[in-house]
């Protein structure tokens, strides 16, 4: 019997972690390149206060950046997707801006907002804004017009059409955009912390890299890794909960439909 993909995935993760431990121990790589997992975790525990403080700073920046990215992204995305004039004006511009490495704007953000948290929040917020806005606009544009027509025929007012049809209909694409935008907000915060900062996990990475303290660099990397994976898991969980209707009944696919309760067809034929 073939093993389940989930099992293989977990085994692979264990294998990577084991290699991380064993390769440096066996002397195959010097500690400067790759300190062992146990050494990295040890550094993390010993310097817990420093890392915890950095984590709090980074989390604070990430959460605010995500709020900006999601709030502005959904709002502007909805306007751009819903109003054809705005769409024609803005969408081509935004789509081409999307390819610009926004990190080049970061020096401007520090010039305007200083090297503290504000510049990171602003930069990461802008960085995460684009996928949220573009997917919201796409979601609104691709709404099945027949659903709106049906809702109108049932007497739905414009606010009811928005809350009862537009929002649930765009939920899948918006949530996908939020997951991507949230991930970009994390990247934006960490990158900006690595460039110019006095606090945060990204700051620890670049600080210890310059003094060649590999275990401390890897400890910081490990934290960011865990943070990103946890965010993704959370986002997926929210998507699964909210979009449960999409997968309803998939488990029993292939099972025969309960024909005996379907009296209509048999009763009529």
């Amino acid at each position: 019997m073939r093993p389940a993909p989930a099992t293989v995935r977990r085994l692979l993760l264990v294998l990577v972690l084991m290699l991380w431990e064993l390769v440096p121990r066996a002397g195959l790589l010097p500690e400067l390149f790759l300190p062992s997992l146990s050494r990295t975790l040890g550094v993390l525990v010993q310097n817990w206060a420093e890392y915890a403080h950095a984590l709090v700073v980074t989390l604070y920046e990430v959460v605010l950046a995500m709020l900006i990215a999601c709030g502005a992204g959904i709002l502007i995305g909805a306007l751009v997707g819903g109003l054809s004039l705005l769409r024609q004006l803005l969408l081509p511009v935004v789509s081409s801006l999307y390819a610009v490495p926004i990190v080049i704007l970061y020096p401007i953000f520090t010039a305007w907002l200083g090297v503290g948290s504000q510049s990171k929040i602003a930069f990461a917020g802008v960085y995460g804004f684009f996928p949220v806005m573009l997917s919201t606009a796409a979601g609104i544009q691709s709404i099945d017009q027949n659903l709106l027509l049906a809702a109108r025929s049932m007497g739905a007012s414009l606010p009811q059409q928005i809350t009862r049809v537009v929002i649930p209909a765009t939920m899948p694409t918006v949530l996908a955009g939020l997951r991507l935008g949230g991930a970009l907000a994390i990247i934006g915060v960490v990158v900006s912390e690595m460039l110019t900062a006095a606090a945060g996990i990204g700051y620890l990475v670049s600080k210890y890299r310059t003094v060649l303290d590999s275990p401390r660099v890897f400890a910081a990397i490990l934290m960011i890794l865990v943070l990103s994976v946890l965010f993704d898991a959370l986002a997926r969980w929210v998507e699964r909960r909210t979009l449960a209707w999409q997968t309803a009944g998939l488990r029993e696919r292939g099972a025969p439909m309960r024909k005996e309760t379907y009296v209509g067809a048999t009763g009529a034929a």
């Binding site: 027949n146 659903l147 027509l149 049906a150 025929s153 049809v165 209707w245 999409q246």
Partner: peptide
Amino acid sequence: FQEASLFPW
């Protein structure tokens, strides 16, 4: 309507 136009959610 021609399409059943049911709300999929």
